[in-house]
Every structure is written in structure tokens, then in C-alpha cells.
């Protein structure tokens, strides 16, 4: 069994490495095949041809493609994504600044989602077939169908414009730098409540329905019926037998969600104008800041590959039956 698991881990890891390699190559060729050189903005067309050639050779554009590719790969693997044209800063600095914001929203909503979904799934199982179950299920379907920006707008309208409880945008207040540390913390929290709520509501609408379905499926399994017939109280049955079985598939979904931690906040960041990675990317698209765009796409895709790896490992850990299928 353990050997099998090790084989799977190794295999998945190698495939992920291959994917990362392919990703880097694909992005490189995309930048070179598309019309307009990505680094054209460094030199004006009014400059003489010689000077342009000089600048080109400084960036290494006169060398053969294979050399350029190798250099590009070495740079990216060492975390050097180049220099932002607009912000005049190394891209890696920009990214690391914005990743903190993005991760702080998405991780906290991720944890909140887990904390809220499991009890509510149990609640729904307890009331399965009743009116409240039906209502919550359909409500979750409606919210699941709503794009995150619609949810965000509704939250802003009721939480910020009508009642004036929460700020509708920005990361901190205008007098942030004059505050003490605890005040700073509460100010940040105050600003982050609506974005975190948005993300939590949108992701919960999916996970609640998913967990509910799995719980109902698990509660109809033969062993549960047998245990129920043998007189074990429903309460214990739910906690000790149905929930762990239903959680297996929920955990694999969580693994996939880890992969989308960086990419799912894109629209939420734009709505609340938070300086996260999604906003950095959209802003740099409007200002044609190619190195930043490429770095953003790379990092969020790496995160997805990483998340898929974690999901596979979780599947093989909790559901050994399907790990055989993954290996074969």
C-alpha cells in the first residue's frame, strides 16, 4: 500500500514538474509569436536603428531563440520575472507585495468556509426533506449561479451604502499611518470584512450543496442502514459514520480550491479595489506592462498545478481505492 502511495506521489510530482516546464515554454513562445515585441516600450521608434539594435542586444534579443529560452527559464526558476515598466520596480517585489493581500483574503475565506460548511451540512442532514432544507438548497443554487461581482455589489449596497457599516473599498482608511498597531489591525479587519464575506458566500454556495449531496448519499449506504437498524442513535451515527465518509470527497474539493486561491479573488479585488494580485494584473493589462502580466499568469498557474498535486495526494490518502486508478 505504502509503496503504491510513494509511486503515486513521485509520478504526480514528475508530471507537475513537466507541466511547469511546458508552461514556461508556452508563455515564452506566446510572448514571441504574438505581434509587437513585448519590450518595444523600452525604446522609442524615433531613435536611430543602431541605437535600437544596441538596446535589443542589451536585452539579448539578437541571440538565437534557444539561448533566449534557456535564459528565460533560468530567470523564472530563480524568481526573476524582470522589471516592471510602469512601476519601475522588480516584478518579484510587486508580486510579493500583492500576494500578501490576496492570500490574506482568500485564506481567511477558505478557513471560514470550512468552519461554516461542515456544521451547516450536518444541520441540513438533520433536517433532510424538510422545508428549511429545500429553502437553503435552492438559495445556495441561486447564490452559486450569481457571479461574485453581483454578490459583492449586493453586499456593498446593503452593508456600505444603505447602512454605512463597512467601507466599500480600499484596504485601509486615509489616516492609517497615524494609528497604533491594534488600531491598524482593526482598521484592516474592518475593510476586509466585505471582501472576505463575498468570497466565503460564493464558495460556500457550492460546497454546502456538494457536502449535502454526499451526506445524503452516505446516509443511504448499506452499513449506515445496518448500524441504524442495530439501534445506534442517529446523533452518533451522523457524527461518527456518515460525516467522515462524506468528508472524503469534500476534502478533495478543498484541495482543488487551494489551487484557485490566487485566481478566484480577481474580480472581488477589482470590485473592492484591493491591491491584490488580480488587480495588479488587470492594471498592468491596461498599461501594457507585459512582464507583470506574465508573472501574474505564471504564479497563479503554478498555484493551480500545486493545488492539483495536493488534491491528488489527498485523494490517495483518504480514498485509497481511487489511488489505484490514478496510478494505472
Amino acid at each position: 500500500m505504502k509503496k503504491n502511495l510513494l509511486k503515486l506521489v513521485l509520478r504526480r510530482f514528475l508530471i507537475s514538474c513537466l507541466m511547469i516546464f511546458l508552461l514556461i515554454v508556452a508563455v515564452f513562445f506566446m510572448m514571441h509569436l504574438l505581434p509587437g515585441e513585448p519590450f518595444q516600450q523600452y525604446y522609442s521608434p524615433r531613435l536611430g536603428n543602431e541605437l535600437a539594435e544596441q538596446i535589443k542586444s542589451k536585452f539579448g534579443f539578437d541571440r538565437p531563440v534557444s539561448v533566449q529560452l534557456l535564459k528565460w527559464m533560468r530567470n523564472i526558476l530563480s524568481g526573476d520575472f524582470g522589471f516592471s515598466i510602469v512601476y519601475q520596480k522588480p516584478v518579484i517585489v510587486l508580486i510579493s507585495e500583492s500576494i500578501i493581500v490576496t492570500l490574506s483574503i482568500s485564506l481567511s475565506s477558505f478557513i471560514l468556509q470550512i468552519l461554516l460548511t461542515i456544521p451547516s451540512g450536518l444541520f441540513l442532514l438533520k433536517h433532510a426533506g424538510k422545508k428549511i432544507d429545500f429553502i437553503i438548497d435552492k438559495l445556495a443554487l441561486i447564490i452559486y449561479s450569481a457571479p461574485s461581482f453581483v454578490v459583492a455589489i449586493v453586499l456593498i449596497y446593503f452593508g456600505s451604502i444603505l447602512t454605512n457599516l463597512f467601507p466599500s473599498s480600499q484596504l485601509f482608511s486615509y489616516n492609517y499611518y497615524e494609528m497604533t498597531t491594534t488600531q491598524k489591525f482593526f482598521d484592516l479587519m474592518h475593510h476586509l470584512i466585505l471582501p472576505i464575506l463575498t468570497l466565503t458566500i460564493t464558495s460556500m454556495s457550492f460546497s454546502i450543496r456538494y457536502l449535502r449531496q454526499n451526506l445524503i448519499e452516505a446516509s443511504n449506504q448499506d452499513f449506515v442502514v445496518a448500524l441504524r437498524a442495530s439501534g445506534i442513535p442517529e446523533n452518533i451515527l451522523r457524527k461518527n459514520h456518515i460525516l467522515p465518509n462524506a468528508l472524503i470527497s469534500y476534502i478533495t474539493i478543498l484541495g482543488l480550491e487551494i489551487g484557485s486561491l490566487l485566481s478566484k479573488t480577481l474580480i472581488t479585488e477589482m470590485v473592492f479595489s484591493l491591491p491584490g494580485i488580480g488587480r495588479l494584473m488587470v492594471d498592468s493589462i491596461f498599461s501594457r506592462d507585459y512582464p507583470v502580466i506574465v508573472a501574474c499568469v505564471m504564479i497563479s498557474s503554478l498555484m493551480v498545478i500545486f493545488g492539483n498535486l495536493i488534491a491528488d495526494l489527498l485523494i490517495s490518502r483518504f480514498n485509497p481505492k481511487s489511488s489505484y486508478e490514478l496510478v494505472s
Binding site: 507541466m19 511546458l22 508552461l23 494584473m281 493589462i285 499568469v297 497563479s300
Partner: peptide, 13 residues
Amino acid sequence: DFFLSFPILFLAI
């Protein structure tokens, strides 16, 4: 698998 590793919205953008 390779194409799935791109988030859709990011690929489109």
C-alpha cells in the same frame, strides 16, 4: 491537464 492548469479567466485575460 496542461490547459486545465490555467485558470479560465486568466487564460482569457
